[in-house]
Amino acid sequence: MSKLVKAGIVGGAGYTAGELVRLLLHHPQVEIGAVVSSTQAGQPLHSVHDDLLGDTDLTFASELTGDEDVVFLCLGHGNSREWLLKTHLPPSTKVIDLSNDFRLAADRDVAGRHFVYGLPELNREQIRTADSIANPGCFASAIQLALLPLAAAGQLHDAVHVSAITGSTGAGRGLVETTGYTWRTGNISTYKTFTHQHLGEIGETLVGLQTSFAKPVRFIPYRGNFTRGIFASVYTTCELLVPEVQELYADYYRDAPFTIVSEKEIHLKQVVNTNKCLLHVAKHDDQVLITSALDNLLKGASGQAIQNMNLMFGLEETAGLGIKASFF
């Protein structure tokens, strides 16, 4: 099959860029052009992403080739907007940004581009016709997927409580004390309680679906002593009966290839190294509890970015994402 899409990656030395390269190398309809890194130009990709040894002879570039169909921005938060303002991209080149620069409605217009919020289960049709995508945050993806059906049905009537834990890769490649092995192993801690940056995009989505929703989302994030994955427990008051809630979720995600509602309780190993988000719904007295699990680097970042790319170019939504869980 001939390659239909030429992809470039900017910010190629980080975790999300490494995941993009791994996935795109095996995508049946994508050719990787330049993988740009300001610090690694001229070095082979496997000098940084050393698991790529034997998979590709690509080297890091100092700039794009100029004929990319799509560019993935894997820059640090705050740098994508600056890069777009100083870089001339042809209007026909699509952009998928993995930072938080364009996730909020007030920030989505820059350099003649309008960014669409790239959660396929929410905005699939808008993504199909977009020229630029703001890829959602990892926690935001897990939490929103847990709540979309309730908001769409106007069933959010009280504060939403979230407790969610993430692996160390969620903090990026740069080594700091709280990502180091000796600190993280056998340890657990909270951070950014009630103030996490993903709350903004979560709030906009919920209000966009249910304009009457004016209650807080009280979010406590945890650092886990594992490398990848997010497990979120989300609960709020709900008057629906158990069968009604289950039917609501089954109907909402009926056509979502990567979001699966499980009848049994879920766990993290089911989703690590996949683009899936698993959900489980239960009722306890008047509280509905939704547990949500996904891989923070895939459905929470690079896998979802490729899912968005597939939609933008009219490809099969699941193309290049048929990967198995690392269960054992």
Rank of each mutant, 00 (worst) to 15 (best):
M1Y: 07
V5W: 03
V5F: 06
A7R: 01
A7G: 01
V10E: 01
V10Y: 03
G11T: 04
G12P: 02
A13S: 12
Y15M: 02
A17S: 10
R22D: 04
R22G: 02
L23R: 04
P28S: 08
V30M: 06
G33E: 05
A34G: 02
V35H: 02
V36H: 01
A41L: 03
A41N: 05
P44V: 02
H46N: 00
H46W: 12
L52Q: 00
T56I: 02
T59W: 00
A61R: 04
S62R: 08
E63Q: 11
T65L: 10
V70A: 00
F72S: 02
C74K: 02
H77E: 04
N79I: 09
S80K: 02
E82N: 08
L84F: 08
L85Q: 13
H88Y: 14
L89P: 02
S92R: 08
K94I: 01
I96Y: 00
D101V: 03
L104N: 10
A106Y: 11
R108M: 05
R108I: 05
R108T: 05
R113N: 01
L119S: 07
E121N: 10
E121S: 15
R124G: 11
Q126S: 13
A130D: 00
I133N: 03
A134T: 04
A134P: 04
G137Y: 07
F139S: 10
A140S: 13
S141H: 11
L148C: 07
A151L: 13
H157T: 14
H157N: 15
S163M: 14
T166L: 12
T166S: 14
A171Q: 06
G172W: 01
G172Y: 00
E177K: 15
E177D: 15
E177F: 12
W183C: 14
T185W: 11
T190A: 14
Y191Q: 10
F194T: 14
T195A: 15
H198Y: 14
G200E: 11
E201N: 09
E204R: 09
G208Q: 12
L209T: 14
S212F: 09
I220N: 12
F226R: 06
F226W: 06
R228A: 11
G229Y: 06
I230G: 06
I230P: 03
S233F: 05
V234A: 07
Y235D: 13
T236L: 13
T236Y: 09
T237H: 15
C238W: 09
L240T: 05
V242R: 12
V245Q: 06
V245D: 02
Q246W: 01
E247Y: 03
Y252A: 07
Y252K: 09
R254D: 10
D255H: 15
V261M: 03
E263Y: 07
I266E: 00
K269G: 07
N273G: 05
K276S: 11
L279E: 05
D285T: 08
D286L: 13
I290E: 05
T291C: 10
T291V: 06
G300S: 05
A301G: 12
S302L: 01
G303R: 04
G303L: 05
Q307A: 10
N310K: 06
F313S: 10
L321C: 06
S326H: 09
